[in-house]
Amino acid sequence: MDLRIIWFWMVGILIIGYAILDGFDFGVGILSLFARDEKERRLHMNAIGPVWDGNEVWLLTGGGALFAAFPVVYAAVFSGFYIALMLLLAALIFRAVSFEFRGKVDSSVWRRVWDLAFGIGSLLPAVLFGVAIGNILHGVPIDASGTDVGSFLEMLNPFSIGVGVLSLVLFVMHGAIYLADKSEGDLQTRCRTRASQAWMLFVVLYIVMTIWSWIGSPFLFENSLQNPLFYILFVVLIGAIVFLPIVLKSGKMGRAFLISSLLIAAMLGEMALSLFPRLVPSSIDLSNSLTIYNASSTPLTLKTMLIIALIGIPCVIGYSVFIHYVFRGKIELTEESY
């Protein structure tokens, strides 16, 4: 099999892993803005306290994989999305610091500031993730030399903002399900209600955005409709969307979390499949698009990186599973908690 195809899916899997893992902790962070009291705010923070930084590793590996396998895409996207990336970094810095700083000073103003840093630092990345994907699906102004000549304001086009809102709603749903699994009583009940509400919004937005991309980016449906994998993923996606509210109602939150993870994987898998073999379609002229063929590293680099990835990725999956296992069950607040 062509190494470039393997790497296309490798980058895809890393982005999907990132969306599933950091997705729920962004969701919990956003929900913390609506927490009722000090105890609830601490419950939100401690629900993801042990795992959020491990989850963010997937963003680094995704970016690293893109750099190694498709340096031309890395250069075009990271320079083209410069301002968006800087805002993302700023948000992630404040979010990361809020965990450590929040409990250090016994003052309500101090805690309020870091609560906002935690909430907004989760909200902004959740939206920007969708905006970035929206731009890729919409097409980026790539000129004949492979350079993104667009500006930050062009990134904020209606379609991309729509995808940004879609990812916000999706992560809130995913986070609410995770928090419901980790909490009890009143908080759990409210999380389940929020997850159901977010599910409804998600279904509406997903249908709207799919129709919008059918009209706006017809190239996404050119090749993918001939691919049997497209229909398999479609069945999985529809199955996950239909079963989610049923499982939510039954109260099996662990199972609901697995289904919403599957939903994210199938949805992003579907997007990857409709892009293939393009990585960044050009909105100026489709023939300027960056593809796995004109943007990849040399075969030797791809081969070397594949060996490293095949050793590294199981390690990351291994410790991710391990840490979730260690901190399984409901959250308990102790002296040592955040």
Binding site: S79, G80, Y82, I83, M86, T147, D148, V149
Partner: peptide, 13 residues
């Protein structure tokens, strides 16, 4: 250097 990142954007960051 990135040719499509302006001096203003670098200054901003």
């Amino acid at each position: 250097q990135s040719i499509n990142v302006s001096a203003g954007e670098i200054l901003f960051s």
